[in-house]
Computed example of a mutant assay.
Amino acid sequence: METMPAGRLDVAAGRFAVEEVPVPEPGPGEVLIEVRAAGVCLSDAHLIDGSLRPLYLAGEKVTLGHEVAGVVHAAGPRLVGDWAPGRRVLLAAGQSCGVCPSCVRRRPCPRVLTRGVDYDGGWARYALAREDTLVPIPDGLPFEQAAIIPDAVSTPYAAVVGTAGVRPAQSVGIWGAGGLGAHAVRLARLAGAVPVIAVDPLPVARERALAFGADAALDPAAPDFTAAVLRATGGAGLDVALDVAGVPAVREQAAAVLGAAGVLVLVGLTHAPLTITQGTRFSYLGNQVRGHYGSGPGHIEELIRLATTGRLDLGPSVSGLVPLTEAPHAVERLTSGADRPVRLVLVP
């Protein structure tokens, strides 16, 4: 039996390690992908520390990794498309469950499964993918840049252009300039937002946000924080505030600097309660809170076009390539916050 290394999480025991596992075989409608690059996300770290748990995982172990790119290695039976060996692809970060009444009726699935959470992901030499989750990528797009498009880029993209509906000349504040937040800065600028204000307690993150196109980068603990936001927005307050950190204090601070009809978009995930302290002000200004999760149909393809035409440079987003065998070190580097990488990418 042929085996391969894979980054496996024992969910019940809370133990993560790179182990040798059997190479999977593609079933009907599936393709076996030879992984060339797989992103390391803070969600992976949260799975390892137990603060995030799978909802639909069938067993006790799962191979992590929801940001994956590679080439077709082998195809299973009954495929609709032509997935010849060697074809370059990235994998969508999730898939419909395929068995619920909505899936049977070809309606939106209410229990979407996440790759590397609810079923095996791409921290491995090979990964299985259902045919409908494959997205072709052109030869000119490096694997490490393609891999991070699902989630690291597509989630803030969908938040900016979809959930928030950012329009040119609107003011946008982004709390958290890590992996998702740094891309939110770049994408808000691409959408025409002005000013784009990044908010992060770490100087290295604020410096990077400026390099990614922020017009201002503020320390949330600064005593003149509110005054600085008002100065940057001509006294009007923010049209859109994105909480990418998933921290209750961030949401309070962001809501307090919204302008008339301003929208707070919850991108970062947390189980903590949502509170609006200045409720009367929030209602008087007609503010809104909108939840956000992942990305929708077409967003990945749009980002591929933006990246391959030079409108969106993802080169600076890759903070380093790390061998798959050193996955635990990559997770530690991400969570330590020492250099606050945008995205580390595992290479099998």
Rank of each mutant, 00 (worst) to 15 (best):
T270V: 08
V135L: 13
A254W: 00
V204K: 09
G162K: 09
E207P: 04
V229E: 01
G286M: 02
Y126F: 15
L321S: 14
L344K: 05
V21F: 12
A338N: 10
S43K: 00
G337W: 13
V331N: 01
I137Y: 04
Y284T: 15
G291V: 03
R206H: 07
R208I: 01
A217K: 02
N287W: 00
P24F: 07
L324P: 05
S317A: 15
A84I: 09
A260F: 15
L134Q: 06
R15E: 14
F143P: 08
Y119C: 02
P203L: 10
A177H: 08
F143V: 10
V104W: 15
G50V: 08
P297I: 09
P85E: 10
L32M: 07
S283N: 12
R167P: 05
T325C: 01
G29W: 01
A338T: 15
T155A: 13
P26E: 08
D82W: 12
A241V: 12
T308W: 08
L346S: 01
V199T: 08
D339T: 15
L57D: 04
C103Y: 01
A222Q: 00
I137A: 01
E252S: 14
P101D: 11
T308N: 07
E20S: 15
G70N: 00
L258Q: 07
V247M: 11
D132Q: 14
A12Q: 15
A205W: 01
G291L: 05
P195S: 05
G235C: 09
E2T: 15
S96D: 14
H292F: 05
D139H: 14
D339H: 12
P101W: 04
L238Q: 02
V196Q: 10
A256H: 03
P142K: 06
V244S: 05
P54Q: 07
K61G: 09
A147G: 09
V112W: 06
E19G: 08
L314N: 02
L47K: 06
L9P: 00
A330L: 08
G298C: 11
I148N: 03
G39E: 07
L128P: 00
E67W: 01
D139M: 06
P323N: 06
R311T: 11
V172I: 09
L269H: 12
I137F: 04
R186L: 13
P203E: 04
L79R: 01
G165P: 04
L55Y: 09
A214R: 01
V331A: 10
G162T: 05
V247H: 13
V153P: 00
A260S: 10
G176H: 03
P5V: 04
V117N: 09
A13N: 12
